[in-house]
């Protein structure tokens, strides 16, 4: 009897392990799935600006041309531990200069390293998963034109169980989807463009949408604001409600993206500053599209939870580099 129980337990444990192994397996896109594509570097730059890649990947506090050296090193102090932003410059050893197109696409759309390891979703691939392959190839072509940096960035310091990468495979099954979040009129080209920019490369939801206990975005509270992951304060609600941007006109929104001033002439602040400065460099039709989409998402009030104050009060200062 005891023997039988033990045998059953062993079988069950083995099945559980096998099951875990299977559901957490990386699921890369095959190189053959890439379209034949002549890269458009200018479009790549536009996506680079829309995604504000330099906000995280340039050296902390880089100014001017230095913002194009994606040497990494910014530290993100979160509830899961300390993430260090990697070097994604064109350096073949310290950066991603040796990556193939499919390596880049799998990092962006599937959160996988070239060797097939799961990347932590601090890198917001749950947004980039919604990007078109041709756009990703253009972005890769643009990144290839940027300077190389030999800066070596240390690994992340995460607490158990987040230190186990394999578990991210399971997390992806819950939270990684290429499908759009908000239904919009598919015949409205401006709304479709706005949705693409906001939900995809712009990855606005990564800060403006609250997360559940596992760090996944709560899509039913899309863009309704969230605690500041880096300390004191909140990331604002940007849905068209009274708590959000309900009173803003389309031109208020586009003026804000262009100038950094709200309708009351308060100025943009915090981590939104570099984002706004990049939005200001986009073509005006992209700013108009983003505004149109934000006015079309479901209006939601601020969450009443208010409690989660995040970790510490210092936030990520200009360390690293």
């Amino acid at each position: 009897m005891a023997k039988k129980l033990l045998a059953a337990a062993v079988v069950l444990a083995a099945a559980a392990c096998a099951g875990f192994y299977v559901v957490t397996m990386p699921q890369p896109i095959a190189a053959a799935a890439l379209p034949a594509h002549e890269p458009d570097v200018a479009n790549g730059e536009r996506l680079f600006l829309a995604g504000s890649c330099a906000s995280c990947h340039a050296a902390p506090k880089a100014e001017g041309e230095a913002k194009l050296v994606l040497s990494g090193g910014l530290e993100l102090d979160t509830d899961f531990g300390l993430f260090r932003v990697p070097n994604i410059s064109s350096d073949p050893d310290a950066g991603i200069g040796s990556w193939s197109d499919i390596d880049f696409v799998n990092a962006m759309k599937r959160g996988l390293s070239p060797s097939g390891a799961h990347l932590y979703p601090a890198f917001p691939y749950t947004s980039y998963a919604k990007m078109r392959l041709a756009d990703l190839l253009d972005l890769k072509a643009y990144l290839d034109t940027l300077p190389a940096s030999s800066n070596r960035v240390a690994g992340h310091d995460l607490s158990f169980p987040y230190s186990l990468r394999r578990g991210i495979g399971l997390w992806k099954r819950l939270y990684l989807s290429e499908d759009p979040v908000i239904a919009v009129d598919e015949n409205d080209a401006e709304l479709m463009r706005g949705r693409y920019l906001v939900e995809g490369p712009g990855h606005c939801a990564q800060c403006h949408t609250p997360r559940d206990a596992f760090g996944g975005l709560e899509t039913d509270r899309w863009l309704s604001g969230a605690p500041n992951p880096e300390g004191k304060g909140r990331i604002p609600n940007i849905t068209p409600s009274d708590d959000g941007i309900g009173s803003w006109s389309l031109s208020d929104l586009t003026y804000y993206f262009e100038s950094g001033f709200t309708p009351d002439f308060d100025s943009v602040g915090g981590p939104m500053v570099p984002v706004q400065e990049n939005l200001a460099k986009l073509p005006p039709e992209d700013r108009a599209a983003i505004a149109a989409y934000l006015k079309a998402v479901p209006p939601l009030g601020d969450a009443s939870d208010g409690g989660n104050s995040g970790g510490g009060n210092g936030g990520a200062d200009n360390t690293g580099g």
Partner: peptide, 14 residues
Amino acid sequence: NCKSCHEDYRVEKD
């Protein structure tokens, strides 16, 4: 100068 200061020294209220 508004945003250059607000970037580091102002936070949204809880």
